[in-house]
């Protein structure tokens, strides 16, 4: 997946699951304070992202540290880079 495709997939999750309009989805937005999610929503966000990216996030420490939407983008961009890293 390209960076743009990753961002589009994450944005789709926010739009479909949390009914947030696309124009509000900018990297600087804080997930709790600006986008209005709470701790229960975060569980559902992880479920949605798990399904979309086909990975398990429950035990992932890094995803728990995200604050902004940009942090979510970067988490999955890094993850995709690791997946695509040629095996030596």
């Amino acid at each position: 997946m390209t960076r743009e495709e990753i961002i589009a997939a994450i944005n789709s999750t926010f739009i479909e699951q949390f009914e947030i309009s696309e124009d509000k989805l900018t990297p600087d937005k804080q997930i709790f304070n600006d986008l209005g999610l709470d701790s229960l929503d975060i569980v559902d966000l992880m479920v949605g992202l798990q399904r979309r990216f086909g990975i398990s996030l429950r035990e992932n420490e890094e995803i728990r540290k995200v604050v902004t939407l940009g942090d979510v983008y970067e988490f999955f961009v890094r993850l995709e880079a690791k997946r695509n890293k040629p095996k030596t």
Binding site: L40, V43, D44, V47, Q50, S56, R58
Partner: peptide, 11 residues
Amino acid sequence: ILNDSENMPAL
């Protein structure tokens, strides 16, 4: 039953 508890919605 489908052993998919990880995808159980929080609510």
